[in-house]
Amino acid sequence: MEKAEKKKESLTAFSAIAGGVAGWTGNTSLSMLTEVDMTPYYFISITLGVIMGLLWDIAHKLNKDVEA
């Protein structure tokens, strides 16, 4: 049971990486749809994606603490 709990707690890095990938994908998709050079905005979109991933992880941990 300890391994399952440890695995759930180590998802913070996964959430941050997934958020960054989502930000990059969103920027790339928007660049393709609008046919505008969005290269200067890659850093911003990836950073916002990482922040959203971390906020998602924090909200999940806070919600888990309330339910337990």
Rank of each mutant, 00 (worst) to 15 (best):
V50H: 09
L33W: 07
A18W: 07
G53T: 01
K6P: 10
V66H: 12
Y41K: 01
V66C: 10
M1R: 13
K8T: 15
E2V: 12
L48Q: 06
V21M: 06
A68L: 02
T12N: 12
G20W: 02
V21Y: 00
K7S: 15
A16C: 11
M32P: 03
K64G: 03
S15I: 06
S31Y: 04
I44Q: 09
S45V: 07
G53Y: 00
M52G: 04
E67W: 07
D65V: 09
G23M: 02
T34L: 04
A4E: 08
E67I: 15
W24I: 12
E35H: 10
S29C: 14
E9F: 01
D57N: 12
K61D: 11
T34Y: 02
T25F: 14
N63H: 13
L62Y: 03
Y41Q: 02
T12K: 09
G53L: 03
K3D: 15
Y41S: 01
M52L: 06
T47V: 00
H60Y: 09
S15G: 12
E35S: 08
D65R: 14
G19L: 07
M52F: 03
M38R: 08
L48K: 08
V36Q: 04
G20C: 03
K7T: 15
D57Y: 12
S10A: 15
S10R: 15
S29G: 14
M38P: 02
W24F: 15
F14K: 07
L54Y: 01
A4K: 05
L54V: 10
E67D: 13
K64I: 11
G23R: 11
S10C: 13
M52W: 05
N63F: 05
A18T: 00
K8E: 15
V66R: 11
A59N: 09
E67R: 15
I46P: 14
S29H: 04
L55P: 02
A16E: 09
A16R: 07
A18N: 08
E35T: 05
S29W: 13
F43L: 13
S10H: 14
K3T: 11
S31K: 04
P40N: 00
S45G: 12
P40S: 00
F43S: 10
S15F: 10
Y42W: 06
A4W: 08
Y41H: 06
V66T: 10
G53S: 00
A4F: 05
A59H: 01
I58M: 14
I44G: 05
